[in-house]
Amino acid sequence: MDLPLLLGILPQVLLDGLILGFMYALIALGYTMVYGVLEFINFAHSEIFIVGAFVGVELLLGLKSAGLLDALPWPLVLVLVLVAGMAASGVLAVTVERVAYRPLRHAPRLIPLISAIGISFFLQDAIRLFESLWRNAFNLVYPTMDVLNVRFELTQTVDVSVKSLVVIVAALAMLGVLHLLVNRTKVGTAIRAVAEDQAAASLMGINVNRIISLTFLIGGAMGGAAGVLFGVQYGLINPYTGFIPGLKAFTAAVLGGIGNIPGAMLGGLVLGLLEALAASYLSLLTGGAFGAEYKDIFAFSVLIVILIFRPKGLLGEVIRGRA
């Protein structure tokens, strides 16, 4: 086996894994924050994520046909697209909660879950219907901006593109802002209070429904940002693209400890790295017996092992109050 070759590609593999991991982390936040306040898995979140990607591509295509894509400075374009995707996904998440989950708040737990799956199908096909009427297209390609594809060569075997840097910087910035919001502001403290005890929170004067809406807004916006970044990084989306990344992000949230915000970030990064490592090394290490297509099997096997030994997830520690 060619050890220098194996080690030589490692930095590149880690970089790819990190990018994928940040994407999962951003999506996983939506699952984990909603679970934190409602103990409910929002299975429509994968579609809330992909709606962000579609709003992003529509805006980019609109700018392109207006001739503005190359006329405007590219960081401004990216910020515009990110904000639009975040706003659309955030508002959509709040609306879905209002229409499909809140009326079922006191129903048995399976009922809102089924409602979420229904919303997921509804959104997939609504996007498909809209795009087939509007563009007569199923797959949409993100318009490229030349600057995003510029690559910097770090070493002979490692290079990094501008769009990869954009994904990392944007994801880090959003995770940082979210961390400050949740841990350093009064409204963030209120979110954590509602997550722990809704009745006690309402006795403090906290409007619980408003905090729940806010949680969906933030989680949805993070998902929308991930959608735009996903489109920028991988280029091709269709109405069903959200499902697999959504499922993996949900897994990442469980891996980190569902309901735990730093856990979702960590779980996303771990899953992304595992997947990238498996994709590059499985085939090399097994002499081709297991190809890169086994990456998910490898990543999920590791997850199963981790969850056997830490069923609450990596950071899912429960602090029990004394009676």
Binding site: T189, R192, A193, E196, D197, A199, A200, I319
Partner: peptide
């Protein structure tokens, strides 16, 4: 002040 105190344990 509710029965069982109901403070926010994680805060």
């Amino acid at each position: 002040v509710p029965e069982g105190r109901r403070i926010f344990n994680r805060l």
